[in-house]
């Protein structure tokens, strides 16, 4: 139920995002979802990929600073109120969200929300109790 997210430290200078993505492309790693958080001086690129092991290896080889974090991916209906509804069970069980990002699945019927929370197990339990599909790792990688 936990998905591996790869985070990459990027200095705020031109070409760095391109270089990171190129490294992954050359290793045939496909990016499933991503978000970038930025400050004035640097950014953090967060990635869900089809092959986390290869992605980690390639990034380290190319001298990027990377870390791996466990996140959860939840399927929500792709319609107004979809995200609001999925947040409710987390709020009710006092699970704090550090950050989240979303993307729409190819089928177009549902969206995937990636949550970074501190209390992973409690979050999974709460979401499942609320009737949500917390996606399995392998399902996320092959979407």
């Amino acid at each position: 139920m936990k998905v591996r997210q790869i985070s990459v430290f990027l200095e705020n200078k031109s070409g760095r995002l391109l270089e990171a993505c190129k490294s992954l492309a050359e290793a045939q790693v496909n990016i499933r979802a991503l978000s970038i958080a930025e400050t004035a001086d640097y950014g953090v690129l967060r990635l869900i990929v089809n092959d986390p092991d290869t992605a980690m290896r390639v990034m380290v080889e190319n001298k990027f600073t990377v870390s791996e974090t466990e996140v959860i991916a939840v399927e929500v209906p792709d319609r107004p109120g979809g995200l609001a509804a999925v947040l409710a069970p987390l709020y009710e069980t006092n699970v704090n969200i550090e950050y989240l990002y979303c993307f729409v699945e190819k089928s177009g019927e549902s969206a995937m929300v990636v949550f970074r929370v501190e209390k992973l197990d409690e979050a999974i339990k709460a979401l499942q109790a609320g009737g949500y599909n917390v996606m399995r790792e392998e399902d996320v990688y092959i979407i």
Binding site: Q5, F9, V44, T65, V66, S67, T69
Partner: peptide
């Protein structure tokens, strides 16, 4: 320089 030990995916920790 940020090291693997000090790097975090959370901006607030980097800050």
């Amino acid at each position: 320089e940020v090291s693997p030990e000090t790097f975090s995916d959370e901006i607030k920790r980097l800050e």
